[in-house]
Amino acid sequence: MTDAFGRQAALIERLWWPTLWVLTAIYIAVMIALAYAMLRRRHVDEVKSEVRTARWVGAAIAGTVVILFAYFISDLFTARAIAGIERKDGVTIEVTGLQWWWRVEYSDSVPERRLTTANEIHIPVGRPVRIITSSADVIHSFWIRELHGKRDLIPGDKSEFWLRADSAGVFRGQCAEFCGLEHAKMALVVVAEPEAQFQAWYDRQLSAARVPPVAVTRADSLIRSGHDVFVTKACVMCHTIRGTTAGSSIGPDLTHLASRRMIAAGTRTNTRGNLAGWVVDPQGIKPGALMPPNNLTPAELEALISFLESLK
């Protein structure tokens, strides 16, 4: 509505402001008419002219019809313009809503260049983006207000829409359809960045995690033991980290967790403290989230966090 960074949002904004001002003007006119009707001085022997009143009422109705018709036409043109985006050379992203996070899959004609990540979407500025929507459980709704309006993610009903960011920025989106307990904490981050930066990010995301083969430094040994914690404790039951034996798809893919801005589906910034707090007590942050609390010793926790922070 305001702060449009994308083509679609800009088109909507262009319809919004005139609509707002015209309707506000009508509202004020109605209120003035009402106030005058209440307060106007009445002559004792005033002859009420029903015909003249009827003329005024008729004019008001006619005005309403004309304004609404004009509004309807501009609405049609806006909808057409939004649908009429150029669709050449687009990035295709499949967004799947789950309770309560987002799976993000970039498709590519080359299988090795397909990418799965979660809760953070990068898009190149100026290139059209095709978003394919689906849901793995209940109905969610995908909404980045700076780029486009909402689109529901409906189980069993894959559909698609297009959007395009026209200037760079980092946007917060949030699920807009009530999807259960943690609907309030199901957010995501969208980063619109120049093509080169996007490509660099994409290539980095394609790489698998690398666990130091030999522990030379203390940091390396911490990372190695963190990796061991990850694959022997509960983490491995739900998460994938490419390059390790962890390969479950119940929870978000964590291969490049450290490169993300937020954790817990846009609920906390990605800092060491927040990450540790989330691993130990997710139910304290998102009560009802599907991630269970983890009983780790302080040493295990420190190693695990070091490992997760190495996943750039």
């Binding site: 307990l181 130990v280 007590d281 139910q283 304290g284 009560p287 009802g288 609390p293 009983n295 780790l296 010793t297």
Partner: peptide, 12 residues
């Protein structure tokens, strides 16, 4: 009843 946060979250 729905108990989301069973027990203390620390190591046990």
């Amino acid at each position: 009843a729905r108990e989301y946060r069973p027990g203390p979250p620390t190591a046990s």
